[in-house]
């Protein structure tokens, strides 16, 4: 059994890649298109990934035989020599078999366009970030996520006040009533995503949420074709801690929303407990551009399904000063020549 998988065009034998625009598989060489049904009949034996496959020392491209250069967590990549996409099956097998995924909706071209728009708004970004060859480095990646389902039961208690003011004669009266407020409630939380890759910044991965789970489909390696993919290196138990903190806050806020009719409310006590925690291993699409500038990494991420953008750019001091100088001069001129009409 091959340890590396590549999807081939049945017409010409070229590599097939998933095309987000048409949601079909396309051959780069003969422009043949196959839908999900066709590709499944073409490769009838969707290899069983249930069984764990041994991790090998090296993997070789199915097309040219060259060794694949990849990190230990990279599970789908391109051959450096022939650009043929390669899926390392062992990294999708056993406990690394994802339950489901959301296919890419945004094409690479769209992602580049989004980046261009975004970077042009960053007027303090250094020029290097706006170069064409820089923009082309943008990569579509299936990022590993843990999606948690759980039930939460929580309570909050605190003090609320209601104030009423009125005047009588020469005096203004302020009446303040104090109440002890108690709320308890429970809710179900579904598919709370937690970044399962150490390589990707948790903060940014949190910011590209939400994903629309209506597009969630069962995992199949064929979607990986044409994209990079990472396997998780954050265990579910570790991610659970992150999820618990988040859901705890959600439920607390939810309970607070039911405290109405008070002029002020201060929480004194809160408690949230979660039960029925179940996790699913999922692959969610992102476009990533990692820029190194003066030894520091700067990340740009587009949600591969919704197109939501997050990222940070370094700030060029000289651009900042130039901007401030220009604003200063403009404001000064407006206030002097415009203000003179009013003084």
């Amino acid at each position: 059994m091959d340890s590396v998988k590549g999807y081939k065009c049945k017409n010409c034998g070229g590599g097939l890649e998933f095309d987000p625009a048409s949601q079909k598989w396309k051959c780069d060489y003969c422009f043949s298109e196959f839908d999900k049904h066709e590709i499944e009949t073409e490769t009838p034996l969707e290899d069983s990934l249930e069984e764990s496959m041994p991790e090998l020392d090296s993997y070789h491209c199915t097309s040219c035989g060259a060794e694949l250069i990849a990190d230990s967590t990279t599970s789908a990549t391109f051959c450096l020599y022939c650009r043929n996409h390669s899926i390392i099956k062992s990294r999708f097998s056993g406990k690394f078999k994802p339950k489901n995924l959301i296919p890419f909706k945004i094409t690479k071209e769209q992602a580049e366009e989004i980046y261009k728009k975004w970077i042009n708004k960053r007027i303090f970004a250094p020029k290097e970030f706006k170069k064409k060859e820089e923009i082309e480095k943008i990569t579509g990646i299936y990022a590993p996520f843990w999606l948690f389902n759980c039930k939460g039961d929580g309570m909050i208690s605190g003090e609320g006040t209601r104030t009423r003011t009125w005047t009588s004669g020469n005096y203004k009266y302020t009446q303040t009533k104090y109440y002890k407020v108690f709320r308890r409630g429970n809710a179900e939380y579904q598919k709370v995503p937690v970044d399962a890759s150490k390589k990707l910044d948790d903060k940014f991965m949190h910011m590209i949420e939400p994903y629309n789970y209506n597009d969630l489909t069962d995992f199949s390696m064929k979607y990986m074709s044409g994209f990079m993919a990472e396997k998780y290196d954050v265990e579910a138990s570790e991610a659970e801690g992150v999820m618990k903190a988040r859901v705890g806050k959600y439920l607390e806020q939810r309970l607070k929303e039911t405290v109405n009719g008070y002029s002020s409310f201060v929480t004194h006590e809160k408690k949230v407990s979660l039960s029925d925690i179940r996790e699913e291993y999922s692959m969610l699409p992102i476009y990533l551009l990692n820029n190194k500038y003066k030894g520091k990494d700067h990340i740009f991420i587009v949600n591969g399904q919704t197109g939501k953008v997050v990222g940070d750019t370094p700030i060029s001091r000289s651009r900042q000063f130039a901007f401030m100088g220009i604003v200063f001069v403009i404001v000064w001129v407006i206030s002097v020549f415009g203000g003179a009409f009013f003084v």
Binding site: R122, F124, A125, M155, G160, K177, Y178, Y179, K180, V181, F182, R183, R184, G185, N186, A187, E188, Y189, Q190, K191, V192, F204, H206, M207, I208, E209, P210, V247, K249, Y250, L251, Q253, R254, L255, T258, K308, V309, V310, G311, D312, T313, I315
Partner: peptide
């Protein structure tokens, strides 16, 4: 220059799953 979090406490809450089991306001 950065993005922002656009989800809130309702995003992942199961539709209609929230139940206020107990609520008291004591003067």
């Amino acid at each position: 220059s950065k993005g922002s979090v656009t989800i809130d406490n309702h995003t992942y809450e199961g539709k209609g799953s929230f139940v206020l089991s107990s609520s008291r306001d004591d003067f």
